[in-house]
């Protein structure tokens, strides 16, 4: 009965249904292993830096704020982590990119997809997509989609290209605003 009452409101909102593939705390634990303290570094971009980032990777973070997370064990830095959203015509995906203290990609996890893209993401991940990004450093160009081309279908390759974009954005943000920056 409640549904019948609420049904007219169904059209009130048009939400691309997001599916959580990996919960954020699980992604944090996987990409910042052993960390027992976490810090959020919010980078409020100037217009110049926002423009530079946009030109570099065709991306402007929401509200002009980049958020990178640092994990520490005691006083030892375990690494850094960023969640990057990529909007696709099939709804947004979210990619978590973890970095080692040496500044290389430790791992990549697709944390969110949509009802439509979930099977494509799962196929791409099963084809070894996440492995393609390991040890990339800022300045490198991710080629995950091309790397899995022989093992995955067209739609998995398509969504892998979107993951590539997310990783490229994370690399640019990390390289420019985390490694070289001082708080």
């Amino acid at each position: 009965m409640k549904l019948l009452i609420l049904a007219p409101l169904a059209a009130a909102l048009h939400i691309t249904p997001v599916v959580v593939l990996v919960k954020r705390p699980d992604a944090v634990q996987a990409l910042l292993p052993g960390a027992d303290a976490y810090f959020a570094r919010e980078v409020h971009l100037s217009q110049t830096d926002a423009h530079r980032l946009h030109q570099e990777v065709d991306w402007s973070p929401e509200d002009g704020v980049l958020t990178l997370y640092t994990g520490k064990t005691g006083s030892t830095v375990v690494g850094a982590l960023e969640f990057v959203r990529v909007d696709t015509p099939h709804g947004p995906i979210e990619v978590a990119v973890g970095f080692t203290p040496q500044g290389m990609v430790r791992g990549v996890i697709v944390t969110k997809a949509t009802v439509e893209t979930k099977p494509w993401v799962l196929e791409a991940v099963a084809a070894g997509l996440a492995n393609q990004y390991r040890e990339l450093q800022p300045g490198a160009v991710p080629h995950g989609a091309a790397a899995i081309a022989s093992r995955a279908g067209n739609l998995a390759q398509y969504v892998a290209a979107e993951v590539d974009k997310g990783v490229a954005r994370a690399l640019a943000a990390y390289g420019t605003f985390y490694r070289g920056a001082k708080t």
Partner: peptide
């Protein structure tokens, strides 16, 4: 947007994630 890029850091707990 600020005139120059600003960085603010604060601690987080796992519950925040």
């Amino acid at each position: 947007p600020p005139d120059s890029t600003m960085i603010v850091e604060h601690p987080m707990s796992m519950a925040d994630f």
